[in-house]
């Protein structure tokens, strides 16, 4: 079979279409998913195993967070921009160091009355 100019043009077109439909990895593909949250996780450092021992021993909150919003640091830090507030970390915490607080009552939301759209 002989390759023609049309074949080349066709292949180029296909390659361009594929490249144009390629996606780029990005944080927050669905926007700031933290806006979905109704309950906010709060860490009590005095109960947390990792903070108390100072060693990377437990980290169950990091392990079980589906949204990867809990960091593997000492102490664990929540990424409230993307945390959907499912509450798995609070349920799974062996010492109940994580508490779920209604979003409106959370300390950082004092100025935010909510309910306005």
């Amino acid at each position: 079979m002989v390759r023609t100019k049309q074949d080349d043009a066709f292949e180029k077109n296909v390659a361009r279409t594929i490249l144009a439909s390629m996606q780029t990895p990005a944080v927050g593909e669905a926007g700031n998913t933290g806006e979905w949250r109704t309950m906010r996780p709060i860490l009590h450092n005095d109960l947390c195993i990792v903070v108390k021992s100072g060693k990377p021993t437990c980290h169950l909150c990091w392990m079980y967070c589906p949204e990867i919003t809990v960091s593997r640091e000492i102490p664990p830090v929540f990424n409230y921009t993307y945390c959907k507030g499912c509450g798995i970390c609070a349920t799974e915490c062996p010492t109940k160091a994580i508490e779920m607080v209604p979003e409106k009552e959370a300390p950082s939301c004092e100025g935010n009355e909510g309910g306005e759209f």
Binding site: V27, G28, G31, T81, G85, I88
Partner: peptide
């Protein structure tokens, strides 16, 4: 995998 996906919470 990065944070902020379209999946349900939990």
């Amino acid at each position: 995998m990065l944070s902020g996906t379209r999946l349900c919470s939990g």
